[in-house]
Simulated scan of single mutants.
Amino acid sequence: MKVAIYGQIQNDLNTHTFHSLVSILKSYDVTVLVEQNFYNLMSADEPFETYKELDSSYSLLISIGGDGTILRAVTLIRNSGIPIVGINTGRLGFLATISLDQFETSIEQLLNGNYQLSKRRLLSVSTSIPNKDIEHTNFALNEITVSRKNTTSMITVETHLNSEYLTSYWADGLILSTPTGSTGYSLSCGGPVITPESKNFVLTPIAPHNLNARPLVINDDTIVKLKVTGREKEYLISLDSRIVTLPNVCVVTVKKAEFYINLVELEDKSFLKTIRKKLLWGEDQRN
């Protein structure tokens, strides 16, 4: 079994978790490789094999960090199909579902094959004006967002669905979210929670200046085109946590990607259990 380890930040908690993880993996005779930059941060006393890119020869990727670390790890996995699971050393841990208090038990479950895979749809982006940053990594697991730049004024986001005009949102921006991302930025802007297996995306305006602009759930086969206008000549587009500046004349086209990301779901870590625990779903102190 060949396992990749990935992380972004060096601190005492991540360092301790890293060494504990490696110890468990080696006790199961697992071949361990550490992402090159993370290995340099860890300054490990013992040598490890490292990697810069991943391929289908890996059985699993384990990230150490929060949900942002998982989103960054997805850019390494791409369309390889490698399952990914996260050890949560961050805050919410909605995607990174292995908690530190159940760390050893969860890793043993993984290595014994006591899990299932949750196939998560991604979004892919193309632009009418070529952009090398987007061309290199043109997909997102959580959401695609267009937003204002260098201004407090709102922008107008002209939106078409399958070439048919929907509306022009007058807002701070617009989020196009996957079911996976529906519990993230979209939720904080009033969007609905969508279960992972749903074949939908959701359009959620950011602070719209009209009362009848509400989140809209659309079929995931829909091709969305966005054109931004505003007082500034540029706007921002973010693919999960990766931000790129585009000129207003640049039209963005978003559709579902041609591949999935395989998120590991342990037996006691289902989506419904996670929203009850992390979002306190339906909790009422009166009952």
Rank of each mutant, 00 (worst) to 15 (best):
M1D: 04
I5H: 02
G7C: 08
Q8N: 15
Q8H: 12
I9M: 06
Q10P: 13
Q10S: 13
N11G: 09
H19R: 14
S23M: 13
N37L: 13
F38L: 04
F38K: 02
Y39W: 07
Y39T: 02
M42R: 02
K52R: 14
L61R: 00
G68E: 13
G68P: 09
T69W: 03
I70S: 01
L76N: 07
L76W: 00
R78N: 10
G86E: 07
G86Q: 05
N88C: 04
T89A: 04
G90P: 00
L92K: 03
T97Q: 10
T97E: 11
I98V: 08
L100P: 01
Q102T: 14
F103Q: 04
F103D: 01
E104R: 14
E104V: 13
G113E: 03
V125R: 06
V125H: 06
T127S: 12
P130N: 15
N131D: 13
E135M: 14
T137Q: 12
F139A: 08
N142Y: 04
I144T: 11
V146D: 11
R148A: 05
T151M: 05
I155R: 05
T156N: 13
E164Y: 10
W170C: 14
I175G: 03
L176P: 09
L176R: 08
S182Y: 06
S182N: 10
G184C: 05
Y185I: 07
Y185S: 07
S186M: 01
L187M: 07
G190R: 00
G191Q: 00
P192E: 09
V193Q: 07
V193K: 06
I194K: 06
E197I: 03
S198G: 11
K199D: 12
F201Y: 12
V202K: 01
L203F: 06
P205G: 05
A207M: 11
P208C: 02
H209A: 09
N210Y: 10
P215H: 04
D220N: 13
T222Q: 06
I223S: 13
I223M: 13
L236Y: 10
I243H: 07
T245Q: 10
T245V: 15
V251A: 13
F259S: 00
F259W: 02
L263Q: 14
V264D: 01
K269R: 12
F271T: 02
T274E: 03
I275F: 00
R276E: 09
K277N: 14
L280S: 13
L280N: 14
W281F: 06
E283T: 11
R286A: 07
N287M: 14
